[in-house]
Amino acid sequence: MAVLVQIEDFDVGFQLNKLRLASPSIGAVVSFVGQVRDINDGDSISKLTLEHYPGMTESALKAIEAEAKLRWDILDSLIIHRLGSLQPLDQIVLVAVVSAHRGEAFKACEFIMDFLKTQAPFWKKETTAHGERWVDAKLSDDLAIKQWQK
């Protein structure tokens, strides 16, 4: 169970190997990588800047991981989220989950990502040809977490 909030890029292969090689009882590795798109709301994006709330970000992400571990039989998880100035094709986020069997890891990975989207205090500002603008939260993200309500 680890959380990294960092400016630096990350190596997905290296991170997944580190997770899976920790125990021979692991039979499934599921991961999600989010990357910066070149077009949003019809405009070309040249830059994406990520702001966060230091301290709360880490505690929110740890709480999401802990909830996933309570709900599913997973062996470990990792969240890496980047900050600062990014460009199209840059990686933004990695969520990885390991478990004995695939079902638990698939569900836990999607759960962590859905809650990260709506609970972790990050904000995106994008730069287009018309200038800078803050990205609005999406209703679809709020609806996505409804499927996890007990």
Binding site: Y53, M56, H81, K117, T118, Q119, F122, K124, W134, A137
Partner: peptide
């Protein structure tokens, strides 16, 4: 550092934050 609703009670020395809906990930 904990999300609260508007009825939440504030105490001395608390750290209160205001922000728009989050857009990470």
């Amino acid at each position: 550092h904990t999300l609260v609703d508007d009825l939440a009670t504030i105490q001395a020395n608390d750290e209160v934050a205001f922000f728009p809906p989050v857009t990470g990930g």
